[in-house]
Lab assay of single mutants.
Amino acid sequence: KYLVLALYDYQEKSPREVTMKKGDILTLLNSTNKDWWKVEVNGRQGFVPAAYVKYL
């Protein structure tokens, strides 16, 4: 498993997404889509914009 760092705040806009705050450390679950990565944060799984996170 990889960890990624939230570069920006992101507010979920659909039930498939998750909210994150700048500085959050997220567990990367799937990065096959170049635009949306599946992550786990605070016990929830969902998608965030790939451009908003970077590998640690």
Results as ranks from 00 to 15, higher is better:
V18M: 10
K22W: 03
V48D: 01
N30Y: 07
N33K: 06
T19N: 07
K1Q: 13
P15I: 10
I25T: 08
P15N: 12
L7F: 05
P49V: 03
A51N: 13
P49T: 02
N42M: 09
K34P: 14
A50F: 02
G43W: 03
K38P: 01
Y52S: 12
L56S: 07
Y52E: 03
L29S: 03
V48F: 01
W36K: 02
G23R: 02
S14W: 06
L7W: 05
T32G: 11
Y55L: 15
V4I: 09
L28G: 01
V4K: 01
R44A: 07
E12W: 05
G46D: 00
K21M: 10
Y55K: 13
K21L: 08
K21T: 09
P15S: 12
T19Q: 05
Y8M: 14
D9Y: 04
Q11N: 14
L5C: 09
G46Q: 01
Y55W: 12
K38F: 15
V48M: 02
S14K: 07
Y10T: 01
K54M: 15
D9G: 06
E12L: 08
A50K: 07
Q11W: 12
K54Q: 15
S14M: 07
N30T: 08
N33S: 11
E17D: 06
R16K: 13
W36V: 03
V4G: 11
N42R: 11
Q11S: 12
N33H: 11
T32E: 14
T19W: 04
M20L: 09
L7T: 06
Y10F: 08
I25H: 05
E12G: 15
I25C: 06
E40R: 07
G43E: 07
N33Y: 08
K21F: 10
L56C: 11
S14H: 11
G43C: 07
K22N: 04
F47E: 04
V4M: 09
G46L: 04
A6M: 03
Y10P: 02
V39D: 00
P15Y: 09
L56G: 05
K22A: 13
T27S: 10
V4D: 00
S14A: 09
Y52I: 07
E12T: 08
K13Q: 14
K22Q: 10
D9I: 02
L28Y: 02
G46R: 02
K13D: 06
Y10D: 01
K22S: 07
P49A: 02
D35L: 13
T27I: 15
L7R: 06
L26M: 14
P49Y: 02
V41N: 12
G43P: 01
L7Y: 05
F47R: 03
L5A: 07
K1I: 13
Q11D: 15
S31A: 15
Y2K: 14
Y8I: 10
A6C: 11
N33V: 05
R16T: 12
A6T: 04
N30S: 13
V39C: 05
N33W: 07
V48L: 03
W37G: 00
Y52V: 07
Y8C: 12
S31C: 13
V39N: 01
R16W: 15
L28H: 02
N30F: 06
K21C: 10
L28C: 07
T27Y: 12
L29F: 05
E17K: 05
Q45L: 08
R16L: 14
L56T: 08
V41T: 12
L56E: 07
F47I: 07
S31I: 10
Q45R: 12
V18K: 01
L5N: 03
D24M: 11
G23C: 07
E17T: 08
Y8N: 10
W36Y: 08
L5F: 09
V4A: 10
Y52T: 08
T27F: 12
P15G: 11
E17S: 07
S31W: 15
L3V: 08
D35N: 12
V18W: 03
L5M: 13
T32K: 11
Q45P: 07
W36T: 02
Y2C: 15
Y2G: 13
A6I: 04
L28F: 03
V4C: 12
